[in-house]
């Protein structure tokens, strides 16, 4: 029975998740107990006391019973008090952040999630964390309400514009786990998904220097595409020649550009690399110097990806 019940819950990937499951299963049996009593009598009495054809009988005149009424007032009150204390304690524990927690910033926007790690690296779509390490997510939203929901951790928190909220968990199982947006946020609400990837320490160290494991299966252009979409490049640099807050990438590779300081230069590997790391150094004439630096937040493999990606955007 318990195995069957666990199948109605997602995999549990933290101690807290196991605590919640235990409580859930307890609640299930408690509810089942009361349902059998109430539902059983609600079906049994109509059968037992049903007036049969031709039968003449009077009903009893029982208006109340002090003991019974006290019984079903006091017992449920005590039981619900137990539930309250149990639920409150496990809840408070699940929001208490251990001192050595690793802080990761989570940003929600219509309709994706991005993550910023303590070393300045960032990424979207997948949240990478080391196994058995307490994690504190510091979250906010760029537009409307969202909610960050990790079923495997049994935790959820609304993400609000203009305010930081947090949640915490300590994964004790390596693997990939689903993340949902659980607060309705419009058209692609159901597409606002992400994956939690729990890695061993060694895997996580590799992740920090070399990036996500899937980079190994990707060519530089694909890596560049991922960065272009997940790190905000696309909001200023179009791919179809449309003028945005920055030059379009369409056909820009190899072009000679006039810069704001009067000099000029060719868009090549060194220029792209410099523009990513020191964006104010050579601003194309006619554009505002508003691009933020990506110094320390893009790995070498990712910068190479960006270069390859821009190279691939032919006229």
């Amino acid at each position: 029975m318990n195995e069957w019940l666990r199948a109605t819950l997602p995999v549990a990937a933290s101690e807290h998740a196991k605590d919640v499951d235990f409580f859930y299963i307890f609640l299930f049996y408690l509810s089942l107990f009361f349902f059998v009593i109430i539902g059983g009598l609600a079906v049994y009495f109509p059968i037992k006391y049903r007036l049969k054809p031709g039968e003449k009988r009077r009903s009893s005149h029982i208006t109340d019973n002090f003991f019974l009424e006290m019984l079903w007032t006091v017992v449920p009150s005590l039981l619900t008090f137990v539930l309250f204390v149990w639920g409150f304690n496990t809840y408070v524990a699940s929001f208490t952040v251990p001192n050595d927690a690793m802080e990761i910033h989570v940003r929600g926007r219509k309709w994706n999630w991005t993550f910023e790690y303590p070393d300045g690296m960032a990424g979207g779509g997948k949240l990478y964390v080391p196994l058995n390490k307490p994690i504190k997510l510091i979250m906010d939203s760029e537009d409307v309400l969202h909610a960050f929901f990790i079923p495997a951790m049994r935790i959820k928190q609304d993400v609000i514009p203009g305010r930081y909220v947090y949640m915490t968990f300590t994964p004790n199982l390596a693997g990939e786990f689903q993340i949902f947006c659980a607060e309705y946020c419009g058209k692609d609400h159901s597409g606002m998904l992400a994956t939690l990837v729990v890695m061993t320490d060694a895997q996580y160290e590799t992740f920090k220097t070399e990036g996500p494991p899937e980079y190994k299966q990707m060519n530089p252009v694909e890596i560049g595409t991922t960065i272009y979409k997940s790190r905000g490049c696309q909001s200023c640099h179009s791919l179809d020649g449309t003028r945005g807050d920055g030059p379009s990438f369409k056909g820009i590779w190899g072009k000679t550009e006039q810069f704001a300081d009067g000099s000029s230069g060719v868009v090549d590997e060194n220029y792209v690399r410099q523009s990513v790391l020191e964006p104010q150094a050579k601003v194309v004439k006619g554009f505002e110097p508003i691009m933020p630096t990506f110094q320390g937040s893009l790995r070498p493999v990712e910068i190479n990806g960006i270069i390859a990606f821009i190279k691939s955007q032919k006229q």
Partner: peptide, 17 residues
């Protein structure tokens, strides 16, 4: 009875929404 699940804070956090 299923309201008991939702009134219990830690279980509600999982089941909310």
């Amino acid at each position: 009875l299923t309201g008991l699940f939702l009134g219990s804070l830690s279980v509600d956090i999982h089941l909310h929404d």
